[in-house]
Write a protein that binds this DNA or RNA. Structure first.
Lengths: 191, 191
DNA sequence: TAGGAGGGAGACAGATCTGTCTCCTTACCC
DNA sequence: GGGTAAGGAGACAGATCTGTCTCCCTCCTA
């Protein structure tokens, strides 16, 4: 498994650099230098830079999904409390030194073409997050879990972008958490 | 004023191309070819590509601000109705064929450095939009206009990003509008 | 021990990028 | 009409980008 060793390490390095500097601005040579891997190895595992980008997005999707859900579930027990905890976990993410916004949003900003597999990967990620929220809303007893989940997803997206631009992670997360609390209360009490 | 003629046209072309394809992916030559202007003219008016980017962001800031506020004010008369109308105007924006998300958010995705004037321009834009919403909230009689405005700004940002990724402009705007309505109702009635 | 696969180092090609410079034309103003 | 500034067209330099290729070394296994 030495092959997947290097392949994984390449992808991990690519995730870091693409997240921080963007996709066009990050050259293949930069990834290779930091990963300590030669060009030959890169092109043995990936047909092109775009395939590396795609692999990075897919791996980040899985990593992020697992880490995020795990933290939410560790932070609170009831579905309703977990919906709120989502925004505490988000705040911890924003506070990370290596937080550069959402890799998927940033990717769409650079690859606007409709047919791109990159766009598909981003849509899949967002659909997954929305689905996770919807499950929590349903478990919490929301009469319209899909509608509430979409609203909370919007708040989360807005908080991510605002934290990225403003560089005030706590504020963005706190505001989103307050708004989410109000929306959740209304959905669960009023009906 | 033939000079500012060409300068303005250059900036307008740059706005279009940067918005659609991003900043690194759009070469100087591409802008020049579409604008029908020579390299000499570009570098007479701008010291570098980054200065052109900055000029594009600043001009887009002014254009967007004027257009957005004008449409909101034409769509509704009362402050409260205008807060809701914000999301109708946003939907019309999302539905435009040339909608590629927010130029400023996309710019931050490509230029993550903290000290960049590009980042400053993006922060200024977001602060301006938040300030506009805050004025509407105050006029509508919200007890905490700044807090409500921040929540609505988050919903707007989330809707922009979601419309950009999902390519379902109506849905993103409708969800944001519903959530905004709930938050506004709560803020204005409950206190 | 021999052979094959994986990988490092890096030359190389071809494209593209930013930014400068030269040569020429046009337009305007005194 | 002459001088001046703006601008077009494009060559050019130097850097950088992606992707291929060669040469060599090092394992691992039969």
């Amino acid at each position: 498994m030495a092959a997947s060793h290097r392949r994984d390490h390449l992808i991990d390095t690519a995730i870091e650099l693409f997240a921080e500097h963007g996709y066009h601005a990050t050259g293949i040579d930069t990834v290779l230098a930091r990963a300590g891997v030669s060009k030959k190895t890169l092109y043995r595992h990936f047909r092109s830079k775009e395939e590396l980008i795609l692999a990075a997005l897919k791996k980040h999707d899985g990593q992020f999904r697992n880490g995020f859900m795990r933290q939410v579930e560790a932070a609170a027990a009831s579905p309703r409390a977990r919906l709120i905890a989502v925004f505490d976990v988000a705040e911890a993410w924003f506070r990370n030194d290596r937080f550069y916004g959402c890799m998927f949003i940033n990717a769409i900003g650079e690859y606007s073409a409709v047919e791109t597999p990159i766009r598909r990967a981003c849509q899949d990620f967002k659909a997954m997050m929305r689905g996770y929220l919807e499950g929590l809303c349903r478990d919490a007893g929301a009469p319209e879990p899909a509608a509430l989940a979409e609203e909370l997803a919007l708040l989360l997206e807005g908080a991510i972008v605002t934290a990225q631009v403003s560089q005030e992670p706590g504020r963005a997360a706190r505001v989103a958490k307050a708004a989410a609390g109000a929306l959740i209360d209304q959905a669960l009490s009023g009906g």
